[in-house]
Each structure stands twice: as C-alpha cells, then as structure tokens.
C-alpha cells in the first residue's frame, strides 16, 4: 500500500490526499515551473484542468440541489410538472404538512424515519462487527487467505440487483432456500411457512440482505487499517507478557479507532440512504415494516406526483444527515484530540 506509507510523513502544506509527499521536491518543482515563460498559463492551468469536473458537478449535483430546495416551496403537483414556471409558491406549507404528525403524510413520514433509524443502527453495527471479525481473523498468514479475501469481496463487486434478486428468490415462501432449511430443521411447519418479504419478517430480511452487501466494505477497509499497525507494537507487548485478547484490546482496537470512525460514518450514510436494496427486494411497494426513507420519498413522489412535497421531504432528510454528520465529526475529532 504505497501511498499509505507516503501519508505517514508529515505534510503541513497539503490537504488530505493531495500534494507531493514531502517538502523538498516541492521547492525544486517550483523553480522549474518558474522557468515556464507564460505566467498566465502557469496560473490558469490547474483551473483549466479541473474545469470539466466543476462543470459536471455543477450540472448534476449543485444546480439540482438548489432547484430541489426551490421546488420544496412550490405547489408542484402533476398539472405543473411539464411547466414548472407556472407552479404557484406555497411558502413553507410543504414542510408543515411533512412534519404534521397528525396528518396521514406526516405520520407515515415519521414512521418511515423511525424504521430507517432502527434499520440503520442494526445494519451498521452488524456490518462493522462482521467486518472486524473477518479482518482480525484474517491477520497473519495461513493457507487460502488470498482466496478467502477475494471471496469475501464478491457481494461488494456483484451488481446490487443481481445479488438482491438472488436473496429475494431465497426468501420466497414456497420455493425459497430459507424456508426449506427452516422446515428441514423443524423450525417451521411445512404447511404453514412464514412469509419473509411481507409483514414483520420483511424488516429482518432487509437487514440481513443489507449486511450481506455492506460488511465486505467494512472488512476491506479494516483489513487495510490492520496492515498499517506496526508489527513492533505487537512484539514489544508480547515481550511484556500481553496475551492475544490484551493485544486486541490495547493495541488493535485503539490503533484502528480513526479507521473505524470513517468506516462507521460511511456505512451510516450509505445505509441510511439505501434505495437499491429495498427497491429490488420488495419491488415497487415496500412493506410498511421495511419502508426506508428513500423508498418512502420515491413512492410518495411518483405515486401522487407531488414533487413539491417530495422535495421538502428530501431537504429535511439532507438537513438531518448534515446535523448528524456534523455532530459525529465534532465528537470524534474531540475524542481524537483528547487521546
């Protein structure tokens, strides 16, 4: 992992992941650049290089975001979809309806939000746990390690829909593998097989499928993090008489803390916003018990064609994520500076 080594050298002049590895070549490069006769070119070249990326980001991310916020203040029902300039402004009314928990719209949004929170907490925790377990157990050399690692990455490499469709086959009531095993183990009655894709069980199914898809990512990053811990730490502590558990608790976990902080944040954002898994697993209508927020906004927007209300919900979602992420970043950076 070449540039992980590079990144351990102190680099006061550059931001994360940018800039040359050390100060010395930088100064030398500056002198060579000074010899380029056209000053203007030297100044504008980096901007010209990033211009296409900026234009595309503006077109697909920044402009739609601004328009989305604007749309959330409009009465944007199906009559105005093809001619949105005629849509009347309704002020905050879209927001008022979304957070009015006595109304049908508000209460179902709140329900979906709570489902998403519980789902996210469980999925992130389980993915992290499996990822850590895999990474720690894969430490050290043993036969078949490389094959196993490649194998564990397959769910991550598989297109979402291919993996999730397979799960939906496995979770079928009459022809699925899950019920087949349950019946064989006498955990379920052959005549009265449980449903896994509707009703209360759908929530469990969704978590299992999601964990199956996301734990390889945690595993991948944590394994790279483990490789960065210097071997002398373990050797020194072994001389001091530390056993395996002691090393796991006092060296591995503390050293992994910065990596864990990033992994948990990324997993949180991915899981909270997950649309693909429930959409492919349940089809167009997700059961109420597994009504994740992205699916909820999607369905309420494209069933009622009320884009104003859908945009207001999206903006609320974004605000929630921004607040949680900021609190998380502040909390973790404070812990880090305390340590």
């Amino acid at each position: 992992m070449m540039f992980m080594v590079v990144s351990t050298t102190p680099r006061p002049d550059a931001g994360r992941g940018a800039g040359p590895p050390s100060g010395a070549p930088h100064r030398r490069r500056g002198r060579i650049f000074a010899r380029i006769p056209v000053r203007f070119r030297r100044l504008s070249l980096p901007y010209l290089l990033i211009l296409p990326a900026i234009l595309l980001e503006l077109l697909i991310h920044v402009v739609p975001m601004v328009i989305g916020i604007w749309m959330s203040f409009l009465k944007l029902t199906q009559f105005y979809l093809r001619n949105w300039s005629a849509a009347p402004s309704v002020g905050l009314s879209n927001y008022r309806i979304a957070v009015d928990f006595d109304s049908a719209v508000g209460s179902s949004l709140l329900h979906s939000f709570l489902v998403t929170v519980v789902f996210t907490v469980l999925t992130v925790a389980l993915s992290w746990l499996l990822g850590t377990m895999g990474a720690v157990l894969m430490q050290g050399a043993f036969r078949g390690r490389g094959v196993l690692r490649a194998l564990f990455l397959v769910p991550y490499a598989l297109p979402v829909y291919a993996g999730v469709i397979t799960w939906s086959f496995m979770l079928q009531r009459d022809s699925g593998l899950v019920n087949h095993i349950l019946v064989q183990l006498h955990l379920a009655d052959a005549g009265d097989r449980p449903f896994w894709l509707i009703g209360d069980n759908s929530f469990i199914s969704l978590i299992v499928v999601c964990v199956w898809r996301t734990w390889p990512f945690a595993f991948l990053v944590l394994m790279a993090g483990l490789q960065n811990i210097a071997g002398d730490l373990y050797e020194a502590s072994a001389i001091d008489g530390a056993g395996w558990w002691r090393q796991l608790r006092s060296i591995t976990m503390p050293m992994l803390r910065p990596v864990n902080q990033v992994v948990v944040l990324v997993l949180f954002l991915w899981t909270f916003n997950d649309f693909n898994t429930p959409y492919v697993l349940f089809g167009k209508s997700a059961p109420e018990q597994a009504d994740l927020i992205s699916i909820h906004i999607y369905q309420s927007s494209f069933v009622t064609w009320n884009f104003g209300s859908g945009s207001a919900m999206s903006v609320l979602l974004l605000l929630f994520l921004l607040v949680v992420t900021s609190i998380y970043l502040v909390a973790t950076s404070r812990r880090r500076s305390d340590a």
Binding site: G15, R16, G17, A18, P46, I50, A53, I54, E57, I60, H61, V62, V63, P64, M65, I67, G68, M71, L76, L81, R82, N83, W84, V266, L269, F272, N273, F275, S294, I297, Y298, S301, F307, G310, S311, S314, V315, L317, L318, L321, T325
Partner: peptide, 29 residues
C-alpha cells in the same frame, strides 16, 4: 484546491433521492 476536493467528495455522500426529483424536472423541462 482544498475546497474543490472537499466539495466534490462530499457530494458522494448526499442521498441520491435529493437529486432525483430536480434532475427529473430539469430533464423533462
């Protein structure tokens, strides 16, 4: 440079649904 890198990377973390409705409207209109 730093603002550019941070902004670009943070868009990766935004919910897709946030861009979906406006992009749909932009493309249609």
């Amino acid at each position: 440079r730093r603002i550019f890198s941070v902004t670009v990377l943070s868009t990766q973390m935004f919910p897709g649904i946030l861009f979906l409705l406006p992009l749909f409207m932009i493309f249609v209109n």
